[in-house]
């Protein structure tokens, strides 16, 4: 375990910057990255214009998006685990990713997404917040954690049913393929304008969640103690859940469903940087960004006929990795996190 939080932060940021640069080199064609980056537009020879276009329009957005989505999902995961006091919680457990997926698939399905470029991202965030509102309404005000989880699981199951229904009614195989691929999660070839619309939601969500660190610390001993330590549990919980809904909704809007990041990264970072739920937030967010970025670089390097979806790779790697952590530390989990 890294004892100094500052050192860990520095290491993660350094790794992130290095990996982002590495990400600019990844792709099917060789691009003279340094030449394009440092010579500037005027200096670029006409034959290098194509390289500039690839770098700025394809690779840079892809790297940025991987970082942003990884950051958001892992942050949301750490927040949900802290809130529910359960290491098996992940952001989708309260139905937010399902809500975003239903609205996105609906908009894509009926072609509304083509009307206005802001419709898909904002619709997904709206779906995410709506699903959260539904869960909270079902669970009731100040509901115990178990009720919240059960309501979330029920809503998430219903929403995945709606997505399946929409897919099964797809007008033609091409539409079905497009929707399915979209849902699998990828950061490739996304519209940067949409990222612009979503940035305020990412920022607001991140601020809401990162500012909840002290509340999550107080929850270490349960809601009763958090309340006695001066926290308005119901209000703090609502703020945190709203932040999670914004982060997950924006992520799903941009990249489809990328699973496992929100579950695994906080787990991993608990062993690397300690289990304090407040410190875990930023540690997880940075590591999540790194994790998705690496996975996206990996899908570009793996020699396959069609490029793999990063969501698929993360789930494929994530499952066994999660099992390994669980088996490695099963003694530690016995009796912990179950209440």
């Amino acid at each position: 375990m890294v004892k100094s939080q500052r050192l860990l932060f520095f290491m993660l940021v350094l790794a992130l910057v290095a990996s982002a640069v590495l990400g600019l080199f990844a792709g099917p064609v060789d691009v003279p990255v340094w030449q394009v980056l440092f010579i500037g537009q005027q200096g670029v020879e006409p034959e290098l214009q194509w390289a500039r276009q690839i770098l700025l329009d394809v690779r840079m957005p892809r790297v940025l998006l991987a970082i942003l989505v990884g950051f958001s999902l892992a942050l949301a995961g750490a927040a949900m685990q802290g809130l529910l006091r359960n290491p098996l919680a992940e952001p989708g457990i309260i139905g937010v990713s399902g809500g975003a997926a239903v609205v996105s698939v609906f908009l894509l399905y009926f072609g509304f997404a083509l009307w206005q470029s802001w419709l898909l991202p904002l619709g997904a965030v709206f779906g995410s917040v709506l699903a959260l509102a539904g869960v909270l309404l079902i669970a009731g005000k100040g509901a115990p954690v178990v009720t919240l989880i059960l309501a979330g699981v029920a809503v998430a199951a219903f929403l995945s049913g709606v997505v399946a229904l929409l897919l099964s009614m797809a007008p033609n195989p091409f539409a079905l393929q497009e929707l399915t691929f979209w849902l699998m999660g990828s950061v490739a070839y996304r519209d940067l304008n949409q990222l612009g619309y979503l940035l305020p939601f990412f920022l607001l969500g991140s601020v809401l969640v990162l500012r909840s660190g002290r509340f999550l610390q107080a929850l270490t001993l349960g809601e009763e103690i958090a309340s006695s330590l001066g926290f308005a549990v119901a209000v703090e919980r609502l703020k945190l859940l709203f932040g999670v809904a914004l982060l997950v909704g924006s992520s799903v809007a941009m990249t489809g469903i990328i699973g496992f990041v929100g579950l695994i990264v906080p787990h991993l970072m608990r062993h690397v940087g300690g289990a304090d739920p407040r410190k875990l937030l930023l540690n997880s967010a940075l590591a999540g960004a790194l994790f998705v970025l690496w996975a996206d670089i990996a899908v570009q390097l793996i020699p396959t006929t069609t490029e793999l979806q990063v969501g698929v790779v993360l789930t494929l790697l994530g499952g066994p990795f999660f099992l390994w952590i669980l088996l490695h530390h099963r003694a530690r989990y016995l009796g912990f996190g179950s209440s």
Partner: peptide, 23 residues
């Protein structure tokens, strides 16, 4: 307030647990 049922959810150190009192 010391509750009868409070059990730590996370595997933090004894000092970190005590520090919750400073919240």
């Amino acid at each position: 307030y010391l509750s009868q049922r409070a059990q730590p959810a996370w595997d933090i150190s004894a000092a970190e647990l005590t520090e919750l009192g400073a919240l």
